[in-house]
Simulated scan of single mutants.
Amino acid sequence: MAIPKKSKTSGDVTVKKSSPDTKTPAHLTHYTDLAGLKGIIENNELWLSHAAFLNDPQELEHGVEQTKKVLNNLLDGKAVEPTATARQKLIKDIADDMENFERPAAYIVCFCERSDILSQWRGYASRQGVSITFKMSGLRSCFSELDAELLQVAYGINEAKRHLRTAIAEKFPDIVDDFDYMLGTEEDDAIRRKFKDLLATLVPRFKHYGFREEQEWRLVVRNPPIDKLKFRPRGQLMLPYLELKSKNKKLPISAVRIGPGVNDEAVEKSIRFFLETCGYDPDLVETSSTPYRT
């Protein structure tokens, strides 16, 4: 099965689905707190955090570990022909590279396909959570300052392996096909560098199966210019992030949902007033139907 092709028009964010059969959602939702809502609305932008500093630092390791397993599977067969022997050595060199694989400089903001998920509200149990729902078409067209991609997350080991095998077969036939390898003109070092580049695009897309409820998509910018980086303190860390500004006057927001908490009526009234003051329709505000209380 071929890798899904990029779906993009001039100036649009690239959208990559986890499968060609996946239906692209009409809306995506970002979960945050009141401070996050204020910053997004007033500054007309989204903040993208460095992937190495996500709440779960093991997320990137999941993709790296699955890559190692796929490469080891490719090494299982015995090489009898000279080209096959050379190919196996190349794969082994790439597998060895994975031991010191440099995690990609990817900056990410996360979205879910659903706007009222209990596990997400629990993440904001110590403060008032809100979810901001965006029109997918608007997300694709309003960010053009940096080269961004909107990636659907693939959950579980089997999905990660399927993506990796497909990517290797499509992008590197010289690794999996003896004849192509024999006729190839590229040096092994060049192939290894390109393989690392490929992994940098794939690793942020993989997540443990236990998180599948989120139905997550990620807006990703890789290797941004150094002068675009900002930093903010969190605990003992200085977290790098990007400000991704909309080229439109308003963000493509279709709903703002108030997460479960205390004094919901007062919270709703204050958010409606805030949105109206910022030029958004106050009727965008909804309340959570989740029976969870802090």
Rank of each mutant, 00 (worst) to 15 (best):
D93M: 10
E59N: 02
L251N: 07
K8Q: 15
E213Y: 02
V130K: 03
Y209L: 14
E45W: 04
R192Q: 13
F172G: 01
L48P: 02
A200Y: 04
D188K: 09
Q120Y: 02
D97F: 07
S137H: 12
L146A: 06
S131H: 00
K247R: 09
T277Y: 04
G279F: 00
D197M: 11
F273N: 08
K250F: 04
P260R: 04
P282T: 02
D188T: 06
A2D: 15
E99D: 15
I168R: 06
S131T: 02
F101L: 07
R205L: 03
S19M: 05
Y241F: 15
V256W: 04
R205G: 02
Y124K: 07
L118N: 04
P225A: 06
R87F: 01
N248V: 10
R234A: 15
I108N: 00
P252C: 12
L198M: 14
L48E: 04
R165S: 14
F231G: 12
E276L: 08
S7C: 10
E61A: 11
S18Q: 13
S289H: 11
N248K: 13
K8V: 13
L151K: 06
K38W: 08
T133V: 08
R212E: 13
F143I: 03
R114A: 00
L242C: 12
T85M: 13
P204I: 04
E186D: 15
K135M: 08
L275D: 09
D174M: 12
S49L: 03
F274E: 05
F134C: 09
F179I: 06
I226W: 03
L75K: 09
A190Q: 14
L48A: 05
G11C: 00
N248R: 12
Y241D: 08
V130C: 03
D147F: 01
V285K: 00
H208C: 01
E99C: 06
F273V: 07
L275V: 12
G36Y: 08
L237P: 01
Y181R: 12
L34I: 13
E243T: 05
T290C: 15
E276P: 02
C142F: 06
K5Q: 13
Q66S: 06
T185F: 15
P25V: 08
T294W: 09
Y31G: 00
E214W: 07
V13P: 00
P291D: 03
M182W: 08
W47K: 09
C278G: 00
N55W: 01
R162P: 04
